[in-house]
Design a protein around this nucleic acid. Sequence first.
DNA 1: TAATTTGCCTAAAGCTTTTAGGCAAACGCA
DNA 2: TGCGTTTGCCTAAAAGCTTTAGGCAAATTA
Lengths: 190, 190
Amino acid sequence: MGRVGLSTDRLVRAGAELADEVGFDQVTVSALARRFDVKVASLYSHVKNSDDLRTRIAQLALAELADRGDLALAGRAGKDALTALADVYRDYAREHPGRYAAAQLRLDPEAAAASAGPRHARMTRAVLRGYDLTEPDQTHAVRLLGSVFHGYVSLELGGGFSHSAPDTQETWTRILDALDTLLRNWPPQD
Amino acid sequence: MGRVGLSTDRLVRAGAELADEVGFDQVTVSALARRFDVKVASLYSHVKNSDDLRTRIAQLALAELADRGDLALAGRAGKDALTALADVYRDYAREHPGRYAAAQLRLDPEAAAASAGPRHARMTRAVLRGYDLTEPDQTHAVRLLGSVFHGYVSLELGGGFSHSAPDTQETWTRILDALDTLLRNWPPQD
DNA sequence: TAATTTGCCTAAAGCTTTTAGGCAAACGCA
DNA sequence: TGCGTTTGCCTAAAAGCTTTAGGCAAATTA
């Protein structure tokens, strides 16, 4: 019974893959041990507990998403940047549904601070530099974009838009058009 | 050891309360049995299994939400209807976070059909009657509203907007203003 | 009141989580 | 190269959740 070469990193990456295959809430220390053909207790040297494992997967997903966002935003501005960032979220969720679900995990303050969460807020603000908004409207707009991206992606992923009619790609395009229009003509207070 | 008077209905309602208190994913057959001071196995006469219990809680939440929506929409149109429906979702989520989480549960086709899901789609379409949209734009708009409502509420609930600055009520108001403006000036294709 | 249904029980098996303690492989250094 | 230390995976065990099977007594019905 030689050593398999476990490490926190390998466990977290395997956990992320597992999440994509069977769903984030089916990610369990036991299932992960099975996947490495190792006894369950062995994982507890690398991961504090089940919660720690899930938190780390969430942080991995947030970081991967932020990396993709940075790449997508490089050299883009205005509507181009808006759709690029929006597509990052949507594509990531479709490619990695389990990881995307993980990214939604409510993190406690320390874990949140150590995560890529703040990078996401910065990316959205970067998109808004292409529009003419000042505080506090900029913050309102950051929240609106976050809501639409997250809301659309999670409804689409959950099958909320199933009975096709117009396909979801067309809706997505039209929604981004609409957001662009809205941001260029943000209604004044009152 | 007399009878406690369990029934599927009482279990589901108690499960919904439990969800609001400890979170939907902490709702367990065991916890529910404890709450009724009854042995776990006793619940299995009233509920098929853990999944069945959760599905029923989800259906309860969807129905309650739809009931509130119907009340809120009665006699309202246009922006008035828009904000009334939006507030239904937001208020419900704040009053009943566990039930709101339950309402997000992915239901299998039969359970979904038996749920109040379709009523929600109808309510959103009813709001849009106050605006001048024809198909397929109306469907795009239904999806946009669903995304914003769900996205905003779940981000706010999850603490995604924590570091205040402008408070979330103000953002919510401004977002609804913005949506109203957008729906009255829906950008044409291309 | 007798017969039937129903409600909650005990028992038991299987799975997940988590801790404690042990042995041997790998590593680090003289 | 050999020795000591660290590290990785193990066995063992306790505790909690899920689910099924079968039993007895209370409630319902005739």
